[in-house]
Design a protein around this nucleic acid. Structure first.
Length: 425
RNA sequence: GGAGGCGUCGCCUAGUCCGGUCUAUGGCGCCGCACUGCUAAUGCGGUUGGGGCCCUAAGCCCCUCGAGGGUUCAAAUCCCUCCGCCUCCGCCA
């Protein structure tokens, strides 16, 4: 959630942020009104409650007629306190509800606009010229079939559309990618984590996924639990309701977890293969740091993502996502998009967001330093989303005969194997 | 799933039976000051978090004893519901 103090002092900043996102400004004024009603009723409650406590203490000491008089006054006060409390709570409930409707205040550096208004920050490597090499590239579904690595037909039979089996070298490839990613993260000082993929409502609400993204979250009705769409959820909620010593920051975690996404509203999009699926595994980086360090930390997460792309020898570009396309928690977001030969375009493989203090306020995660206690900043970034990485790897490193070259950095994790050989000639 | 025990302001802990200066005790840790060749020890003071009065400071006030309700003039204390942890039993990879 945003800082209420900031909202009171500079409501125009919040309004213009909402505008940049293409989100309504109405809640801003409704929230200001509810907040002011909450404070008025709260102050009234405080005064009455102080008097009530005072009279109550006198009752204990008094006796006889004096006591009866005090009791009468005490009863009146009890009723007035209750009324003021009810008013305060009603206003607070409304304010709480409204504040959750407001997205994070966007970073002024972020490009303003919609999905197509991103700015390209870098292009690294160059797409292969398959025509010059004399063959038409196969897509990952075909390559996966030739290698015996991906089985989408049986995925659909057993679980429905957008499900798959990784088989044989496909399964080995996932384990190798995950191990490569974890090794890199641990080498960079991250604490590796295997978090729960099923979380309770406070954890899911706190990370901000039950707002505009709610329709993409799987919920287990019988148990009132949620399946996480990313390890960001359990890694952010890990320190929920805690006050961290600023000396320990930054805290960096690398979580490996399954990710579940309903993909509502994306019917008909990326229906072929394993580019967009309901379930996949992912290694996610997560940082807790001082708010003033978050911008530098964001660049570091991006650099670690790029390091991983380099190891996989994939051509890609980095984009600065426009304000209208940010998640509600993010103030700024960078995506790394790999070149997908058969789609002839760049597609998102990783994404890193600076959530500033938005997420930590919702989750009540704070830090203590010389200046006192205040919310800290949280950031997240994908290190390796397995199926999309496999798609990029197969398509970019394929050979004319359907075999796939293994990048040098990945070979040790595949028993030194330099080539995934096609089983079907 | 069943039975029992427990949950107090960083950690440990008193208080809960029997409601009222509990305005929550003490210890550890931490911070400041004093004393001291230095350190240690000792002494004194401070030390939950959130909110409001108000923009800051001082100061004052309210809330916070796992969470939420209830009873009462008054709840850490009594009642109800829920959550978590521990022990034992059952079941299970």
């Amino acid at each position: 959630m945003i800082d209420l103090r900031l909202l009171r002092e500079n409501p125009d900043l919040v309004r213009s942020s909402q505008r940049a996102r293409g989100e309504p400004e109405g809640p801003v004024d409704a929230l200001l009104a509810a907040d002011s009603r909450r404070r008025e009723a709260g102050a009234r409650f405080d005064r009455l409650r102080a008097e009530q406590k005072d009279v109550g203490r006198s009752v204990a000491k008094a006796s006889g007629a004096e006591r009866d008089g005090l009791l009468e006054r005490a009863k009146e006060l009890a009723a007035e306190v209750k009324a003021a409390e009810a008013e305060r709570d009603a206003a607070a409930d409304e304010a709480d509800r409204l504040v959750l409707e407001l997205s994070n205040v966007v970073d002024p550096e972020a490009p303003v606009g919609g999905e197509d208004d991103f700015v390209v920050l870098a292009e690294v490597g160059s797409p292969r010229d398959f025509a010059a090499e004399g063959f038409e590239p196969r897509d990952h579904v075909e390559l996966g079939r030739l290698l015996g690595a991906i089985d989408v037909e049986r995925g659909a039979k057993v679980s429905g559309s957008r499900f798959y089996y990784l088989t044989g070298v496909g399964a080995l490839l996932e384990l190798a990618l995950v191990q490569l990613a974890i090794d890199q993260a641990v080498g960079a000082g991250f604490v590796p984590m295997i978090p729960p993929a099923l979380v309770n409502p406070p954890a899911m609400e706190g990370t901000g996924f039950l707002g505009q993204a709610a329709e993409n979250v799987y919920r287990l009705e019988a148990d009132d639990m949620y399946l996480v769409g990313t390890a960001e959820v359990p890694l952010a909620a890990y320190h929920m309701d805690e006050i961290l010593d600023a000396e320990r920051l930054p805290l960096r975690y690398a979580g490996f977890s399954p990710c579940f996404r309903r993909e509502a509203g994306s019917h008909g999009k990326d229906t072929r293969g394993i580019f967009r699926v309901h379930w996949f595994d992912k290694v996610e980086m997560f940082s807790y740091c001082r708010p003033e360090d978050s911008f530098a930390e964001h660049r570091r997460l991006l650099a670690w993502e790029q390091e991983f792309f380099a190891k996989l020898e994939l051509p890609y570009r980095v984009i600065d996502v426009a304000t209208g396309d940010l998640g509600s928690s993010a103030a700024r977001k960078f995506d790394c998009e790999a070149w997908i030969p058969t789609q002839r375009r760049y597609r998102e493989l990783t994404s890193t967001s600076n959530c500033t203090q938005y997420q930590s306020r919702r989750l009540a995660i704070r830090m203590r330093d010389a200046e006192g206690v205040r919310p800290l900043a949280t950031l997240n970034g994908t290190l390796c989303a397995v199926p999309r990485t496999i798609v990029a790897l197969l398509e970019n490193h394929q050979q004319a005969d359907g075999s796939v070259r293994v990048p040098a950095a990945l070979q040790p994790y595949l028993g030194g194997c330099p080539l995934l050989a096609s089983r079907v000639p």
